[in-house]
Write a protein that binds this DNA or RNA. Structure first.
Lengths: 247, 247
DNA sequence: TGGCTGCTTTGACCGAGATCAAGTGGGAAC
DNA sequence: GTTCCCACTTGATCTCGGTCAAAGCAGCCA
């Protein structure tokens, strides 16, 4: 039942997120120091990793799988405020309580550090602090990009935006080129997509059906998507030459 | 016509944002180093400070006034993605092109640094890098908070949310207590509010009228607002015990 | 095999907010 | 003063996406 690790625990060098995570800039010595305080944790799909308001005694990186940051209002309305992909950082140095729910959307493996030792390490290791700043600035950009999606785009454009992000991220992970059709599996349920997009799950379903009917995407089953023409999808998303974004 | 500075240029110690800006943690020596590379710039209300896509050769802090970060789609739809208040930082170390339009909403004075020297300074001054990380994390929180507003709140709740932010910010600046009525001037036009909230200006106007009619706020002229009961306003905003946020 | 259960689709209807269109009011220029 | 302008308000109508309701469909367990 527990998600199994697919790589060698003992060795940071072989870690799949070695070059992108908060430790990306670390040299051999620094890596060794981190190595000595790290530990792995696995979470099953659907499990809540951290509850909003809880005391957080660890920080860490997503090694594999996808997690989400979610806010909830008292009456139950929820909004996803971040998607955490492999190499993304969880937790906030210098703060005790978690600000959001963190949930495992798929099975997730995290590389964790107890907060105190990590904070101390950060203070004496500019490589870590600097990398974390860079990653935080990237996340801020992604969040602001997403504000445009939430505030101004139509339902159809929202769906197209989400699909293009997932397609792009998938291509960057699997190192496929940017030409030819994009093929990937949706890692989110219709409801999770709705929470991310500020829509209802019915609207998500309808708009996906519409994009399929119009030939913008092909669907095999409910999750397997083919994008025959990426430019067409980007056009549907409303941003015709959108740079960057989550990667 | 040019906005005039209200304080002593020569001296960082007397700077109104000394204790909150990116230089907050600096000691006397560091401050002196910054002092030697800083310069002030003034902008009039309505002026564009930076165009999205432009090469940015400076970074800096807002000293007084309010600026906004805005994204625009090709068809003209716009979304404000950030409000920059005194002490907020503008620009991104390590990136050349600006990602957003930055506009002066009121008359603005900025304390600027040429990007290169600032980056070099940052690399050798952990106090600056650390403070910038902290400020960026705060901004990220504010952005995510705002995603909930954009994605899930009704027009009325959005207006109430914006008013409560402005009221709170104003109280924190002017050091008024948190009891008794809040009184402040709206620093934004109806259109700017609409851009921030993902609404049209007509809807903004209607909802403000409705809140006024229901006694949640009092209006004198079009911009002068009194909030007789802050808890009532927060209730209307949908967050009944909302912590933090922009400050 | 049948019946759950969870995810998804589809339909009918409704309403919040957008759109289109006047109209108001106050300040600045003439 | 009067005129212009600009920010704002208000009204009438339309529409996109929400809401409520009913199936469809695949996987799973008994």
């Amino acid at each position: 039942m527990t998600a199994k690790l697919q790589f060698d625990h003992a060795n940071c060098e072989s870690c799949p997120i070695r070059h992108r995570a908060v430790c990306a800039r670390c040299d051999a010595d620094e890596l060794e120091a981190l190595d000595s305080i790290k530990y792995y944790r696995s979470f099953e799909a659907g499990q809540t990793i951290i509850w909003s308001g809880d005391h957080m005694n660890f920080v860490g990186s997503v090694v594999s799988g996808i997690a989400s940051l979610t806010q909830t209002m008292e009456d139950g309305r929820t909004q996803m405020v971040g998607l955490l992909l492999p190499s993304d950082f969880v937790g906030r140095p210098g703060r005790d309580a978690a600000a959001y729910d963190v949930q495992a959307t798929t099975d997730v493996v995290m590389c964790c550090f107890r907060k105190k030792p990590f904070e101390e390490m950060m203070n004496v290791t500019p490589h870590i602090a600097h990398r974390l700043l860079q990653m935080t600035l990237d996340e801020l950009d992604a969040a602001r990009e997403w504000m445009l999606v939430l505030g101004r785009k139509t339902a159809r454009e929202k769906i197209a935006s989400l699909l293009s992000i997932i397609a792009r991220r998938d291509a960057s992970v699997s190192q496929k080129g940017l030409s030819g059709p994009f093929v990937f599996d949706l890692p989110l349920t219709r409801e999770a997509m709705a929470d991310y997009l500020g829509l209802t799950l019915e609207t998500v379903s309808r708009q996906i059906s519409a994009l399929k009917k119009d030939g913008v995407i092909l669907l095999e089953g409910k999750r397997h998507v083919t994008v025959p023409d990426m430019d067409r999808l980007l056009e549907e998303a409303g941003d015709d030459s959108d740079g960057g974004f989550l990667v």
